[in-house]
């Protein structure tokens, strides 16, 4: 069954081997670098772009990759991600596609951490146990579920722990202290710090007060802090790098892809690599 595909045997009481995500942040810290985490919606504008785009991101210097799993009603996302989700669904992509994509990327030698990001309903429909087991077998290292706050996360957190996957939780500028404590207690891998009060989407400037907000979180956790939402340019990445361990770049990369949707595949792939390299300034 699904279990037998699990390539990482669960080590029950021994200290678990640090996850690929933890190892990556440890290495980057030693090198004094900020992690760059580009995001692609799996199947946008087509599946070939995802399969060839991930190695391009690696070549361009991306350190971890978020693989977005399309959903019909992505209510934490702005127009850019909504459109990418819609297009991916029209291309016939589903939850199983992301797992298959990860499996293929691993088979082709991609070694950086892969993180699946998606809403809870398709995951529930796939089956939580089956989903996490399949993620583990396919080499997906962590999960981000933007509509699953700590109140609803028990089952997924426990399942991820059992399969040695990181469950990455989100905090927002509006999260009060008691919620910060609750979130960091359950999180692993890193903390996804939403940069602004709002939905995803490229922005011209970073929100003010980021330093105070991150300092508030830092008081309660040693986990790496990664900032997402609105991070669009090399300048933003550098600004975030002063305060946090990593930056997620999603809508800006999707916008770049949208501009060249109809270009031949090699051009799209080259554009992804160039864009990601450009984020290092």
């Amino acid at each position: 069954m699904v279990q037998t595909l699990d390539t990482q045997p669960t080590q029950s009481n021994d200290t678990p081997r640090p996850s690929r995500i933890a190892e990556t942040f440890a290495r980057l810290k030693a090198e004094g670098r900020t992690a760059v985490l580009p995001y692609l919606t799996v199947g946008y504008p087509d599946l070939e772009t995802t399969l060839a785009g991930v190695p391009a991101i690696v070549r361009g210097g991306g350190d971890l990759i978020e693989l977005g799993m399309a959903f019909s009603d992505p209510l934490a996302d702005g127009v850019t991600v909504q459109k990418a989700n819609q297009r991916a669904l029209e291309n016939g992509v589903n939850t199983g596609t992301t797992i298959a994509v990860a499996r293929q990327l691993r088979a082709e030698g991609v070694e950086i951490p892969l993180i699946a990001m998606g809403y809870i309903n398709p995951i529930m429909r796939y089956g939580i146990e089956r989903f996490v087991a399949d993620c583990a077998a396919a080499g997906i290292d962590g999960l981000i579920v933007p509509d699953l706050p700590p109140e609803e996360s028990d089952e997924l957190v426990e399942t991820c722990r059992r399969h040695g996957r990181d469950f990455i939780m989100l905090l927002a500028p509006t999260s009060p202290e008691r919620r910060i404590k609750e979130v960091v207690r359950r999180a692993s891998g890193f903390i996804y710090c939403i940069s602004l009060t709002g939905i995803t989407g490229a922005r011209a400037e970073l929100q003010e007060g980021l330093a105070d907000y991150l300092a508030r979180i830092r008081r309660y956790t040693d986990l790496p802090l990664v900032v997402g939402f609105g991070i669009s340019t090399a300048k933003h990445v550098a600004q975030v790098g002063e305060l946090a361990e990593g930056a997620i770049v999603a809508s800006a990369l999707l916008n770049r892809l949208a501009e060249i949707e109809d270009a031949p595949l090699p051009d799209r792939i080259a554009a992804i690599e160039t864009f990601v390299r450009g984020l290092r300034g």
Partner: peptide
């Protein structure tokens, strides 16, 4: 039921 909401509005 429950509260399957983005973290940003959980405090609210």
């Amino acid at each position: 039921g429950g509260k399957y909401a983005p973290e940003t509005v959980m405090g609210a």
